[in-house]
Design a protein around this nucleic acid. Sequence first.
DNA 1: TTGTAATGTAATGAC
DNA 2: GTCATTACATTACT
Lengths: 152, 152
Amino acid sequence: VWHVDARPVFTIDRILGLDLDRQELRNTKPAFIILKGSSESSSEMKRKEEEHNLNCKHFTESYRRTLNWCIGRRPRTAFSSAQIEVLESVFLITSYPGIDIREELAQRLQLDEDRIQIWFQNRRAKLKRSHRESQFLMVKKAFADLKDKEEE
Amino acid sequence: VWHVDARPVFTIDRILGLDLDRQELRNTKPAFIILKGSSESSSEMKRKEEEHNLNCKHFTESYRRTLNWCIGRRPRTAFSSAQIEVLESVFLITSYPGIDIREELAQRLQLDEDRIQIWFQNRRAKLKRSHRESQFLMVKKAFADLKDKEEE
DNA sequence: TTGTAATGTAATGAC
DNA sequence: GTCATTACATTACT
């Protein structure tokens, strides 16, 4: 946990006591358990259980978000243009640099190896998007050409 | 295609004849339909159908982005006060509406789902800003109070 | 000028 | 690993 001090301590969530320990969440009994042995059908039970699981999912998800908000996510790294330049030129050679290359880059660019890793992941995603787009343009052009031929 | 007149008329997409109607996209037959009645298993069919839907999604996304690149930035959407009202009341309940809620909102408010998504993102950012500001004010006031006490 | 819709991308979590 | 989605900084428009 990198920077406790980057976020205000007096958050609304804290004031409202929303930053409970994760353990407390697990200890709260789901409502559907009480129904066991009752006259309700098993399908109804199953539905309730699923509903509970869904609620749990949303609950823990919002828990995560709240926690995330309190503790804070890693501050956005602003790469310098010089760093970007190096990263881009390496990307031209490999879009999947091994750990050795990443470590070397990290050292040379004064960055964590993690940042390098993430950068390449995002860069690959960007490349993929642009590939899709250029493919799309080609299809479009094909359509346009067909139209031209029809008009002749 | 949002506003033809806000940007120069001689855009790349026009020159290439790329500003075809979105309807044409829908009319292109998905490949998996051809497979109907073939010897492939239904699970394979289902997989292909899902793949096709994914491709469609990416395709229309690319379509939007490409147009975006050609035409320029999307013109500012001016939400009506009625739309804002609905959005705000939903925001009170969830600031993270899932895809289902966003789609429903889109339909009811006659907006693209994308606009809804962006609106919620910006709304969350605004909320965060106001939180930070009120916190700052509180801290400031606390300091001021301390000073007052010292002077007594 | 301000408020905010839109954009790009670093970071995160699910799978 | 990918993918969708998020936060966040920034841009640009009304």
